[in-house]
Write a protein that binds this DNA or RNA. Structure first.
Lengths: 367, 367
DNA sequence: ATTTAATACGAAACCGGTTTCGGCAAATAG
DNA sequence: CTATTTGCCGAAACCGGTTTCGTATTAAAT
């Protein structure tokens, strides 16, 4: 075998510098080089420095998969999300995760799946092939099969959200229930008493908690919530449009509506327009998420904003600590959403019956 | 060493079935098992079937990193994107890439970076550590440093877009120039003659080509394009708002404007409203991308729609073929954007001077 | 009947790292 | 001055796969 010398630096096929080249160059055993690079205690300070210096000069970087074969770690965060559900947040979220991962020299392995079952299968494949050391679980459900899967496979994970059975779970979450409580508080301070709530699918834990926050706000502030004014399973803007229409067509329509998500709330504008109502004066709405689109709505949406990028960053940091062995119980963080006032809510002007009359009148005009 | 038997099936630490367990179970050498699983010619049909059957029963799946150490392939697609630029398309694009990757048993390694230099550094790290076998390059520039990096490192890549120096480049792209040509054609059939063009940053190849398409349309259909009506570097909705205002404030404003991107076109609505103009009657606009938001605009935006998910899927497929050794020249695909008619463009009603007068009048009313 | 070729598998090298273990030399203790 | 410890490094095993090479057995050719 011939060896190619380049300014006394030997390189392998494909120009790659391996630990063997380093060892040869340094006149050390390759095990010694590895130990020096990984700061083992039984390597003297001087050789450790010498090794690291030459390694930097030769631009040596170990192959992640070669390290993994002994360490069992690929330094990668797994993220499997369902195709439709994460759309509006995705870019910020990925930016947060990826940035933190990068600073720790980790990477991010992403997969998308169309259905819940497919998500499980994809996650399983990533586990089996060890494409990731641990997983971030977005959109946790009250009862979440992904958690069972990861628990039984003994793979570290962190939740973006919380769940019912918290055993062994680490998480980062925004206290959406707190935001919903404050939304009620705000609308009541504006004089509203008949307040609707349009929620997402309550099998998701975030929706479950937001509803709890809404109900708690109503009760503690002295109102018995009317079950008829609470709608669930609203996931798209079109759903939100339909649901808003449904509430407004009631005999005693709500004068204000709280939406669990901006996506749903954006449907309110169309519904209001159809009934000749102006959002922000005839009808007050408050929502949650703080999507960019909410600021472009007319009038701008009052919404509780979430720092999605920071969430991604924290989740990545928590997961890495979890993989490194820290206990799940010590890795639980929460944060608050903050009010982003728009012009979609205001002091009560029309009573519920006045609102109802206006709606009837507009319908009459149309026909 | 003790061995744990579970219904005659031996499992390693962590419940993982290795190729050694398989070999032992089958009474074959592990090399033979490997060859059987990889369908080598020197393994008999019968043992090949037997091995695959038992492998499936024992739910064996090889560790991706253990395979990589010999094959040099991790079966992963690399994707590094700049934080702000891909936002609106990201979810669909990732879904397309990921789905195709999954069917080939590949995965997707994603990273985000804030600046162009950081993108290069991140890409280099992924190459050096071999976290990916090849890369998809989104938003290619006319002259793109990422291409130089990958060429010199001899790492396979495919472009989402085209570039100036095509040597060794595979790509998938939508013919945006064709869409811009058709946009001109459509507006001229509506009687418009004074047509503006609001473009993105022309260091991006897509913007470069769209401008060529616009100019070609104007010239071939008999109009000398007015350079004053062509603005570049418009990347955000707010940029689009400012640029639209600038065109409308001219002495002879355009009666129609073509936007290279929906994001820019969405800013036109605000500018038009400020001047008391109605988009779709006083001012016609046509755009490109087909973002979901464009359908929710009022009136809905006429735009050339791109199937982003399919683009991701095709790019993944092309890259995998490229990694497997197919020549770059044989891996070049293009597709067309298709017109998605909204109500933002219509037959000419106001001439340029009438439009100008209306704008002046609205300004006068405001002051 | 002997030689040659084809088939099917085993044994072992190999990939590029990490980690264990053993031992030499210098330093410290007795 | 000897015995023991400590510091520091080399040698080799190891991880779980893939790939090369050699060989026994059987089939085909001479």
């Amino acid at each position: 075998m011939e060896k190619v010398l380049t300014t006394s630096i030997r390189k392998g096929v494909g120009g790659r510098v391996t630990i063997n080249h380093l060892a040869e160059e340094l006149g050390l055993a390759k095990g010694t080089v590895s130990k020096a690079l990984n700061s083992y205690a039984d390597i003297s300070e001087s050789t450790r420095r010498r090794v690291k210096k030459i390694a930097a000069e030769m631009d040596y970087r170990p192959l992640a998969y070669a390290q993994a074969i002994r360490t069992g770690r690929v330094r990668s965060i797994g993220l499997v999300f369902q195709t439709e559900s994460e759309r509006p947040f995705l870019a910020d979220f990925l930016a947060g995760v990826s940035q933190t991962a990068s600073t720790e020299n980790w990477t991010l392995t992403v997969a998308t799946s169309a259905s819940e079952e497919e998500v499980l299968l994809t996650t399983k494949r990533l586990i089996d092939e060890r494409k990731a050391d641990g997983f971030i679980l977005p959109r946790t459900k009250v009862i979440d099969p992904r958690i069972d899967l990861l628990r039984s496979a003994n793979i570290p994970f962190v939740l973006w959200g919380r769940t019912k059975d918290t055993k062994g779970c680490a998480w980062f979450d925004i206290l959406g229930e707190d935001a919903m409580y404050k939304a009620v508080e705000r609308l009541m301070s504006f004089g509203h008493r008949r307040i609707g709530f349009i929620n997402s699918d309550i099998s998701y834990n975030f929706a479950h908690l937001r509803q709890i926050g809404f109900l708690k706000g109503m009760k503690e502030l002295g109102i018995v919530p009317d079950e008829e004014l609470i709608l669930g399973g609203i996931k798209t803007t079109d759903d939100g449009y339909q649901a808003t229409k449904k509430l407004l067509e009631m005999l005693c329509p709500p004068t204000a509506i709280i939406y669990a998500t901006d996506v749903a709330a954006l449907g309110a504008y169309k519904a209001a327009a159809e009934f000749g109502l102006k959002v922000g004066s005839d009808l007050s709405i408050i929502s949650y998420d703080g999507l960019p689109e909410s600021a472009y709505a007319n009038p701008p949406l009052t919404t509780f904003k979430v720092n999605t990028k920071r969430a991604g960053a924290r989740l990545a940091a928590l997961l890495i600590e979890r993989v490194r062995g820290k206990s799940a119980e010590a890795l639980r963080e929460t944060d608050l959403a903050f009010l982003n006032p728009g012009e979609s809510d205001s002091p009560l002007k029309l009573s519920s019956s006045e609102l109802s009359n206006k709606i009837k009148a507009s319908k009459f005009n149309l026909t």
